[in-house]
């Protein structure tokens, strides 16, 4: 792990258990909704930083660089600027990274990114000049050597980024994933944020398998707002295992006739389930926090965290 530049990494370095959130811009020039959501996350007082997605699932959206900057400026919430290799070559990536440094961003999440064929612009050229691991190397070189991958010198102060990368606890065989994460850590990843995990046993097995890697691990969770959302993960998000009990409980609640009662029960269930989940993963020393991807569902974030903190 490198130096701590961001509040996120400073908190981790101080031994605090951290929570990150997620913000998603759309194909729009209007960021008011994103800013509102960022304010909600900030108001929790528990979310130390929020990721800003970069053309998620290869669906075109307002630039993550611009969104990250405006969110920080308007709300004071620190961002984790997501950057994908799908759409830019190393020249453009380095250029955007210099821009990010000039705008005061401190966290970058280096991603390979989905193939354009997965998104709404399947005719686009898939770039992938670098992959996610090589992007980690590029950022590391810029921060610690003041140079890009070709050795070209950066003039003026070096960028100050903490470098994040993605991990997938659901990957089978886990050994292949762990070796891959070793590579990412070797070239300079400070922290890993994982793919959504529902099954705590999957998370625990993963955390044991990566305990030798010198980086901070933040496990990704997604409290669903409805049975449909939970079912969506089980059926449509390949590789994500949703435990049977979890799905069945959601199904039962979804059958309640009263809407308010249903909402209350779903909130209660999520708070109970994920607080217990977090308490268990928190016991693993390599687990330094949780990445909460509860986009559009702010009411559960605080209660979950409060319940964890109460012990």
């Amino acid at each position: 792990m490198g130096q701590a530049f961001s509040n996120l990494m400073k908190n981790i370095a101080e031994g605090k258990f951290v929570y990150t959130g997620e913000l998603e811009a759309h194909r729009s020039t209007d960021l008011s909704e994103v800013i509102q959501w960022a304010k909600t996350l900030k108001a929790t007082g528990k979310i130390v930083a929020a990721n800003v997605t970069d053309n998620p699932q290869s669906v075109g959206a307002l630039s993550s660089l611009v969104t990250s900057y405006i969110v920080q400026r308007e709300t004071g919430l620190e961002t984790v600027y997501q950057l994908r290799c799908s759409d830019r070559n190393r020249l453009a990536l380095a250029s955007d990274l210099l821009g990010a440094a000039a705008l005061g961003l401190k966290n970058v999440l280096a991603l390979t990114g989905d193939h354009p064929k997965k998104g709404d612009t399947p005719e686009a050229m898939p770039v992938f000049d670098l992959d996610g691991t090589q992007l980690v190397e590029l950022i590391h070189k810029m921060v610690y050597e003041g140079r890009d991958l070709s050795g070209n010198e950066i003039h003026g102060p070096r960028p100050q980024f903490n470098i994040g990368a993605a991990a997938n606890p659901n990957f089978k065989p886990l050994e292949a994933e762990v070796l891959k994460l070793e590579r990412k850590a070797e070239v300079g990843a400070d922290f890993f944020q994982t793919q959504v995990v529902f099954d705590v046993n999957v998370a625990l097995e993963f955390l044991d398998a990566v305990s030798h890697i010198k980086a901070a691990f933040l496990i990704g969770i997604f409290p669903p707002r409805s049975y449909n959302q939970a079912e969506y993960f089980a059926k449509n998000v390949p590789g994500v295992q949703v435990p049977k009990d979890f799905l069945e409980s959601f199904k039962k609640i979804s059958e309640l006739p009263d809407k308010t009662e249903r909402r209350r029960k779903i909130d209660e269930y999520n708070i109970e389930y994920f607080a217990d989940f977090i308490k268990q993963v928190k016991k693993k020393p390599v687990c330094k926090g949780i990445h909460v991807m509860a986009v559009g569902y702010p009411e559960v974030v605080n209660p979950i965290i409060e319940k964890v903190e109460k012990g």
């Binding site: 799908s86 390979t112 989905d114 193939h115 997965k118 898939p126 992959d131 997938n168 292949a176 390949p238």
Partner: peptide
């Protein structure tokens, strides 16, 4: 590899199959 990656597999690999 659909992405021509040097350090794969990527997150699009599920149960040994490519996302594309």
């Amino acid at each position: 590899c659909a992405k021509g990656l040097m350090n794969g597999p990527c997150g699009g690999c599920v149960e040994g199959k490519c996302e594309v």
